[in-house]
Design a binder for these strands. Sequence first.
DNA 1: CCCGGTTACGCTTGTCGTAAAGATT
DNA 2: AATCTTTACGACAAGCGTAACCGGG
Lengths: 283, 283
Amino acid sequence: MDPHLLRTFTTVARLASFSAAARELGYTQSAVSQHIAALEGDLRTDLLTRRPVAPTPAGARLLEHAGPLLLRLDAARADVLRLAAAPPGRVTLAVSPLSVGPRLLAALPASGVALRVLPAAEVPAAVATGGCDLGLVDGLAAASDPLRLPDVAPLTVTGVAEDPLAVLLPAGHPCAERAELRLDDLADARWIHAPDIVAPPPGSRTALRYRGTDLHGLCALAAAGHGLVLLPLRVARTAAAGVAVPLAATRLVHRSELLAPGTTTGAAAALALRLTAGSPYGT
Amino acid sequence: MDPHLLRTFTTVARLASFSAAARELGYTQSAVSQHIAALEGDLRTDLLTRRPVAPTPAGARLLEHAGPLLLRLDAARADVLRLAAAPPGRVTLAVSPLSVGPRLLAALPASGVALRVLPAAEVPAAVATGGCDLGLVDGLAAASDPLRLPDVAPLTVTGVAEDPLAVLLPAGHPCAERAELRLDDLADARWIHAPDIVAPPPGSRTALRYRGTDLHGLCALAAAGHGLVLLPLRVARTAAAGVAVPLAATRLVHRSELLAPGTTTGAAAALALRLTAGSPYGT
DNA sequence: CCCGGTTACGCTTGTCGTAAAGATT
DNA sequence: AATCTTTACGACAAGCGTAACCGGG
């Protein structure tokens, strides 16, 4: 269960080829073959079928563990190295699309910050492994509850914003005239599932799958009637087309949180302070 | 960042001694010294002070990562091995003290089950690393919200019970006659902090620290006026002494959840079914 | 036969233990 | 002086690459 072996294993599984994995990792085919053999010998189970190369059930199970494991390992290394490293000159901020709000816009102009837009699910990893100095994530949660984030590393989590939710409807939709909606009212509706932007409401059915982090395109699709989208009211109102109807009688709110690694110094620490200053939302 | 090196590092840090760690791990002092040197060389930072042996700041940081990391590694190995292993003859169920409720008592008699009482924080690890076949954890959460559990491994989590909360007061307490209480009413009160049994209410101050999983002793202390305790109403009512007053106007409930590893077979699967059958509480 | 994974084998490197040296109280 | 960590060194094993081998399209 050497991490090197796990890394080779995940690479082989991802590329479905020993030789391609060898090229990517800078090994020879032979070494890759030996790595897999070592893992399989250690666990006394086949992990991959050859020809075609695909994970066995045991291999699939191991794959579920290997990703988070290697991530945590990178995070640990990055975190310790960060202690000794000089504070970054230019701060890189990982943001999920909907986490960009007034608070960030107000805090930004002060210094040279590079933004990096990532799906919410990837922001914690980006901060933990040192790719970015700070992160802003958003998601749906019960009011004043912190978001559920994958714990890749011990990160400092601070709430920075909470917004009520709204549904973005096409102009002609039967509910478009109403002052507010409940999720029950839309029980039969189809939603656009855009996992890189917003989690869909629990238990909803999917009309269309939308990949990528482009919010504008998503709103356009919703306005054109291809499916409903749940957005922070603040964002839904600014959509060029479509009608934003506030969501009532729900415990859910849209929440944004700042993620900071254990060590935050220099310009990154200053930005973190501006982002959280006077925030009414706790850890 | 070889796991072996991390393991000796954590052992040395825990025992504050190279030689003691060597004895525990079955190495020579020399090997331990080389392990630490290898880690320090790899990260280009001192991790431990010698004489006395104690973690440096960087070392302390690494320690925070090392524990969860090694746990996940064990969990991965155990999970894959469990796929091939024969279903256990006797099921071992890890339970946190307050997770033992009517549902478990009803499901138990059917077969030979061994119970293992652990602090709630250790139950997920016990299930993930294969020490136990199933786990029951409890904790405080917003109504119908799942508990926040450390994700040591991808476990199947199923809610099995929710209970209203109560405060256990000594007989003469000013609030003891009231029909119900709010947490605000007790803002100045001191609580017994028993981390292995119940999380204290958020923001409370501690009168006494109580270690161990013995519920009876905790109730006795509370009844004797050494501090308040927050318990599921069901449990508080059965306390031999003391007065149980229901907690009102809170989002918090006491919740129990069943943890199952990815692979659950035989008698363990049957028990899991009985425990969750007809449960109104979701994932 | 060609492509791709496996096996054999030699070389290099790494890891451990023994033992001597060094440091700290 | 005693205790505990570090360093030196030799033995052994592990890991990688080269190259030969094999099995399926």
